[in-house]
């Protein structure tokens, strides 16, 4: 199984140019990061916690405003957009969070429907009212992650893995072209990680969505990534294919004291 899908002429989906972010506290979270992501890629961002992975992903859809540098989405500079143009661009980018970030007191279906807020009727949406078409689409999104039977339950009744799958269908509801996933399985039981990752992989393989996903578990990285970039203290320190990620590179990214996450498979692989 080759990780990169054989696309005829892969267009650029996201281009990040010299991105930097300094927080008001003075912390330099990102420093001169430049990455180009082609359409259909499954790019994994690797790095320790605090290395700037989250900040990088949030700069792409402008949940955080970068201090310097530019980000282009399909050729449009999102860092230059404001107001409704920015919101229109965000609709094309779905996001999945480590803590799921569902609206806990809303039903599973309402959570999925909130993915349609960007294109729906403004006043109507304030009363939690959606068109039958949207509701039908939301149900099909839930079906995809196998949770249609839980549609009317309160979101916080579901297990962590299920909540993350609801979050995936909320992102699907946007009909996005790009998916940003910020440590999507880090707060899940290890046994459930693949069940969530496989859904994200399916969006990439079957729908051709470009995925940018931060991960730190080395096994998951090798299993799902088509390309890897690694951050250390806000700087881009490594870029390459998963098969080139060996033990020495791993130590370079994670520091001298680091042990490859599970077994020693890192060295054995070609």
């Amino acid at each position: 199984m080759s990780a990169t899908a054989p696309l005829p002429a892969p267009q650029e989906a996201v281009r990040i140019e010299h991105l930097g972010k300094t927080f008001p506290s003075g912390v330099r979270a990102l420093d001169d990061v430049s990455i180009t992501v082609r359409e259909g890629e499954f790019l994994v961002v690797l790095g320790l916690s605090g290395s700037g992975k989250s900040t990088l992903l949030r700069c792409i859809n402008r949940l955080i405003d970068p201090s310097d540098g530019r980000v282009f989405i399909f050729g449009t500079e999102i860092t230059a957009l404001t107001g409704s143009a920015l919101r229109a661009m965000r609709r094309r980018i779905g996001m999945i969070f480590q803590q799921f970030n569902l609206v806990k007191r809303h039903s599973v279906l309402d959570n999925v429907l909130s993915g349609a807020l960007g294109r729906g009727h403004m006043v109507r949406s304030l009363f939690l009212s959606f068109t039958p078409d949207e509701v039908a689409f939301a149900r099909s999104c839930l079906q995809r992650v196998g949770l249609l039977d839980r549609a009317s339950e309160r979101a916080d009744r579901l297990s962590g893995g299920q909540q993350q799958r609801v979050a995936i269908s909320r992102a699907l509801m946007q009909r996005p072209e790009i998916i940003l996933a910020d440590e999507p399985v880090a707060s899940l039981d290890p046994a459930l990680r693949h069940s969530v990752m496989r859904h994200i992989e399916a969006l990439n393989r079957e729908e051709g969505m470009t995925v940018i996903c931060s991960l730190h578990d080395i096994d998951l990285v090798r299993r799902y990534a088509s390309r890897i970039v690694a951050l250390k203290a806000g700087r881009l320190v490594w870029e390459g294919q998963p098969e080139h990620l060996d033990a020495s590179t791993f130590r370079e990214i994670y520091g001298e004291d680091a042990e490859p996450a599970s077994n020693s498979s890192v060295e054995e692989e070609p």
Binding site: R58, N61, L63, R87, A88, M89, R90, R91, I93, G94, M95, F97, Q99, F100, N101, L102, V103, K104, S114, G115, A116, L117, G118, R119, M122, A167, R170, M173, Q174, L180
Partner: peptide, 13 residues
């Protein structure tokens, strides 16, 4: 603030 981020990320006003 997590849900606020999530809703903002969908392109909501």
């Amino acid at each position: 603030t997590g849900p606020m981020d999530a809703i903002a990320a969908t392109g909501a006003s």
